[in-house]
Amino acid sequence: MSSAEWLLIGLLAVASYGVRLAGLIGGRAIAANPRLKPFLDDLPGCLMVGLVASSLAGEPIVTWLAALVALAVAITSNNVVVTMAAGLAAIIVGHQLPFF
């Protein structure tokens, strides 16, 4: 592994355990804080949406259409693996179509 990969794993491990430890030590106070609670509730969903937006930025129309297919499957199935499979199938089929 490259040093960047080692660094990524190391920093992510420290960050991950650090958050858990903070939850153990001061979690009650943080989670019950009326200013922080809505922030902590809203942040994960927004981050996911931001990730979707950044991975679609600058992509061709076929990728956006595959994302719509994945969204429809996600709404109906609410299952990560099923959505990944459907999204992959959609993009592979999309690339085979003559007009894309």
Partner: peptide, 11 residues
């Protein structure tokens, strides 16, 4: 991307 869409759906 599809995984992120599904994880957002769950949230």
């Amino acid at each position: 991307t599809a995984a992120f869409i599904a994880m957002a759906r769950a949230m």
